[in-house]
Structures are given as C-alpha cells and as structure tokens.
C-alpha cells in the first residue's frame, strides 16, 4: 500500500488526560475510511492535531513523503490536506457564492489580488454555480450565511472543502445537523469525489458510515481500538465494550 497520508505515534494531553494516546493511522489514495467512537473519544482532537489547528505533544504527520508536523494549518491546506469542521465555521456576513468563489480563488492562487471582483470571471462563476447547485444551495447564492438554515450552512461547509480540491479530505461529522432529506446531497457529493482522493470521515450515523466506508477505525479514550473492515467492526468485543461502557459484559460478545 502506498501511503499518501500517515500519522505516527501522535499524542496529546489536556491537563493530564490523554485525549490522543499514541495514535498511528495511514491513508492511501482512494481510501474511504470512517473514524468512529463514542462522544469525547478524541476524534475532533485528532483532526485538529493533524491539520495544525492544535499542536501535538509528540508524534509526526506525513503528507506524501513530507513531514508536515511543524507546518502551519494554512500551509498544510495548500499541500492538499483539507478539513471540514464539526461546528460550522463560516463568514457569517458573506454569501455562499462569496464563500465558494473565495475558496476557488485561493486554490488558483488568486486570492491575494487587490483589484477586480470574482463575478467578472465567467469560468469561476460557472464553477461556483455548479458547486452550489450540487449542494442545493443555488437559490441561496446571494443570502448572507447567517440568514440561511443550519443544515444548509453545514452543506456549505462541505462545499467549501471540496472547492479546494483536496488530496486528503477530513470530514468531521459532515451530516450532523443536516436534515435527513438533505444528507443524500452529501453522499452524492462524496460519491463524485475523484477516485484517488483519500477521505477520512467522522460520523455517528452508522448507516451512512457503512454505506460510505471500505474501512473503519474506532477510537475510544484517545486510543485506536479497531482498524479493519466494516463487516468485522460490529462483532468486535472491544468496540462493543467501548460503546456500551465499562459496565457491559464484554465476555458475552465472544
């Protein structure tokens, strides 16, 4: 397996609590991996560590052959390591159209331009409309983000990540807060992703996880307790124990 993205022995403590405890994970091009685990298992912290939003205590992160552990978040993004946030982070005063346009401009190295307006670029506008259309946001193109429903803000969050054309995509609970009727848009967008892209998705919705993932990683109390095929995860004793808590009779599973 040629690794595109690799995390080695990552550790992070918050006030003595090991939130990320010696985590090692590798992703190959084309991987579709789900990262699951109970609330507070350290999934979001793991994403924050690898994207540079948090500093690990120890361990390394590699993208391609490069050690990116000490790079700033923005530099990792420019190398193709893109994330979405569990709690939506948008520019509340800007419209969906402006968000997506800015992401495309940045991808093309044009976001530093001090003259001109994105609407004067037909090819860019075409792509913006296509992306917004994909996520059912076209009608809301010119409404400020703070005025659109939370579920649609979530869709815009995903749209932004895709507009940056990632090599490695980390989605932190993309479907959380999206109405059931709209989750199909996220799934459809995930299906359309380029085949060689590596995706790691965190989600609590097991139906979605099983439809999406070819591989499942389970995190509990900061430790990877399972890394394997979806069909094996339900039967795994440690996984059951982690989800049911310490009081469950793990012995009866085997």
């Amino acid at each position: 397996m040629s690794t595109l993205f690799e995390v080695r022995n990552l550790r992070k403590n918050f006030g003595g609590l090991a939130v990320t405890n010696d985590v090692s994970i590798g992703l190959a091009p084309g991987d579709r991996v789900a990262l699951i685990g109970p609330n507070g298992a350290g999934k979001t912290t793991f994403v924050n560590l690898v994207t540079g939003n948090l500093k690990p205590d120890s361990g390394n992160v590699f993208l391609g052959n490069e050690d990116i552990t000490t790079l700033r978040a923005a530099e990792r993004v420019r190398r193709g390591l893109i994330r979405s946030f569990q709690v939506t982070r948008l520019f509340l005063d800007m419209t969906p159209e402006e968000h997506v346009a800015l992401a495309i401009l940045q991808r093309e190295g044009q976001a530093g331009r001090v003259v001109g307006h994105y609407s004067g670029r037909p090819a860019l506008m075409q792509e913006v409309r296509e992306i917004l259309h994909q996520f059912g946001l076209l009608e809301l193109s010119n409404i400020k983000a703070q005025e659109i429903a939370y579920g649609q803000q979530r869709l815009l969050e995903i749209a932004l990540a895709l507009a940056l054309r990632p090599k490695v995509l980390l989605l932190d609970e993309p479907a959380a807060g999206v109405p059931q009727s709209e989750t199909a848009r996220i799934e459809a967008a995930l299906k359309r992703l380029p085949a060689d892209l590596a995706v790691l998705m965190i989600d609590h919705d097991m139906d979605l996880v099983f439809r999406f993932a070819k591989r499942v990683i389970v995190l509990a109390a900061g430790t990877v307790i399972f890394d394997g095929l979806p069909k094996d995860v339900i039967a795994d004793a440690r996984v059951r124990e982690a989800y049911l808590g310490n009081y469950a009779d793990a012995g009866s599973v085997a």
Binding site: A74, F85, R89, L164
Partner: peptide, 21 residues
C-alpha cells in the same frame, strides 16, 4: 477585491481563513 474579501474573512473567522489555505 478577493484580498478585501479575505480581510473581512479574517475579522469573521480567522480559523476558517486558515482552513482555506
């Protein structure tokens, strides 16, 4: 301009600006 949009973005959510690269 695009740069002006970035500046507004910095005020509203610097983490998002970073996540855009």
């Amino acid at each position: 301009s695009p740069f002006g949009m970035l500046a507004r973005g910095v005020r509203e959510d610097p983490v998002r600006v970073g996540a855009m690269g």
